[in-house]
Each structure stands twice: as structure tokens, then as C-alpha cells.
Amino acid sequence: MAPIFRWGFLGLILTLIYIPILVLVVNSFNASKYGIKWGGFTFKWYEKFWNNDGLMTAALNSLTVSIVAASVATVIGTLAAVALHRYQFKGKALLSSMVFVSMLTPEIVMAISLLIVFMALGIKLGFISLVIGHITFCLPFVIVAVYSRLKGFDMKMLEAARDLGASESSIFWKIILPLALPAVAAGWLLSFTLSLDDVIVSAFVTGPGYEILPLKVYSMVRVGVSPEVNAISTILLVVSLVLVVISQLLLREDK
């Protein structure tokens, strides 16, 4: 009885999660414009997307920003987590609680404060401001992910390494980083996703010359979301799946 229940429950959850995505993927090949009836198989939405310069640029811009922001946030976040875990310094408690505060700050507050800061500093709104904004809201998630992994460590390993004459940097590269790698990768993926679909912060901190995909898609409501969006979403889905698979493979080799 129990296995049936367990598998049934699991199946139900997976169905609920994946059916909308499946419908979207199927509709991206649907010739009917409103996706209500099946109008035959077609690649025309992919073609239209390919020829739609505005959407193409926005999609590429989005990917660029997400990759850069996720990578920088992961580097800074990992170092911050290591610092918070290993060292005692003044203001440590304050710093670690500030991490949670910025995680819980409503996005709209962060968006407006970032815009005000950029305007005060005279930073031109565009790629740079967008990346800084995205790093800001990704950072706490990386810190928390990596920090909780580090907390599970046996500190004696690090002491043993030092006993055997390992320098601080080789402790970091040879012990801490390999052990924390799954959390670092998770932090990167989390940041990537957060950054890729962010609308609120992006709407405020980007400038006219730098359009990103989620903003463009949200802004389509005025004239109705076109089926090209199904095509883009399918492509993005494939890209993210590939990233997840790559990260899983990398982690497996490390074990």
C-alpha cells in the first residue's frame, strides 16, 4: 500500500509541475496562433523569433547578464561564506544578519534604492547597472547556500591540514572548495535563475539601450503575448536543462 501511495503522490506532484511546461513546449510547435486548438506542426514561431531582432538581442542580453551576475555573485558569495564560517572579526554578527535582511527585502524596495544610488553616483543605466543590481540580489542566496554546507564540515580536517603544513590558500583550494563545490554550483544555478527571470529590479535599473527578455515578455500584455514567446521559453528551457546536466556531471566526476 505504502509504495503505491508514495509513487502516486510523487507522480501527482511531478505532473502538476511539468504539465504546464509540457503544454508550453507543445504549443511552441503549434501552428494555431492562440494555442487553443492544435493547428498542425510548425517551426514558424522559431523562425519568427530568429528573425525578430529585438527579441533575439533581448534574449542574448538576458543570458549575458545572468551568466556574468551569477558568476560574480558566486565568487563573492563563496568567499564571504568562507570568511563568515572560518574567521572571527568585528561586525561578523552584524554582517551575517544583514545577509538575511537583504534576502527578505521586498524587491521593489531594492529596485528603487538601487536606482536612486545609480542616479546619485551618475552611473549610466544599462549593462553595468543591471549587472550590479543582479549581483546584489543574488549574493545572499549564494552566501546562505555555501555557508550552510560549510557548517556541516568537520573543522578537524582543516586543523589537520594546517598541522601538516598546508598554507591558507592550499587549504581553500584543496579542501574547502572541493567539499563546498555542490553548494557553490547550486548557488550559481540559483543566481542564474533568479537573474534570468527578474522583472522588478531590472525594470528600474536597466536603461533604454539594454533590453532584457523578461521585461519584453511582460510588456507584451498590451497586444497579447505572441507564440514566439513559447519558442523562446522552450529554447531557454533547453539551455537551463543543459546547464543543470553539465553541473551534475561535473560534480559527479569530483566525487
Binding site: L115, T206, G207, E211, L215, S219
Partner: peptide
Amino acid sequence: YATYESNEAMYAKIKL
């Protein structure tokens, strides 16, 4: 060509 997703967002940004 820059885009917004609601009148509210457009207004807030131009105001800011």
C-alpha cells in the same frame, strides 16, 4: 526602444 510592463512602472521610473 525600451519597454515597460505597466503604466505604474513607466510612471515610477520617469518620476524617479
